[in-house]
Design a protein around this nucleic acid. Structure first.
Lengths: 102, 102
DNA sequence: CGTGTAAGGAATTCTGACACG
DNA sequence: CGTGTAAGGAATTCTGACACG
């Protein structure tokens, strides 16, 4: 419920550019490098979410620090893997606890 | 902080139309009747918030019930007045309580 | 590699008006 | 009153390419 807004892809690239301070060129390029994943309207115009705004801000910071796009992408992957592992562990422990009760 | 997204005017009329199911014509008309207040880009395109989406849904419901735009506007005004009064009362009581303590 | 830019075209939005009821 | 629609123009976005470094 509270995520419904942050995740909804409804914002146009011009507005995203204003919100993030990045050029449209940069934003499209980060998509090409698989750092960001906008949806498309029927006509083909890109649509972003507030979550994407936040992600772009992080990307911008890392770029300023001299990081390269592929490094950022790798870092993201690592983070996702860790989160997945953590979730699996939690699920596993819940499962074990559940079995013990019967 | 949690309002920062709902209030931000970033959505284009086409998307608003999709989200609400209303035609662009209807959305512009409700603005003309002072029921909704989008911002504008430099170029003049309207920009709406998620809050506006919710407001438009309510308007749509009332229209379906046969209510007229001026009635809806009047109702809104009443609601705002009530809320204002309530806030003033709370503030007044807080003030009174505060004075008593000194 | 990351970004700017000019180019041409397509999608999107805008306004004012006419129509219907 | 509330909404659809065709009309013409302007703002917005899109892609592929060249440039620089």
């Amino acid at each position: 419920m509270s995520r419904s807004y942050k995740d909804k892809k409804v914002i146009t690239i011009g507005v995203i550019s204003e919100l993030t301070g990045l050029s449209e060129r940069q934003i499209r390029y980060y998509e090409e490098r698989k750092l960001i994943f906008p949806e498309r309207s029927n006509g083909g115009t890109r649509k972003y979410s507030f979550d994407d705004v936040e992600r772009l801000m992080e990307i911008a910071n890392k770029m300023e620090e001299g990081m390269q796009t592929f490094e950022i992408r790798k870092q993201e992957k690592q983070k996702m893997k860790k989160e997945q592992l953590r979730d699996e562990m939690i699920r596993g422990q819940l499962n074990a606890a559940f079995k013990m009760r019967k």
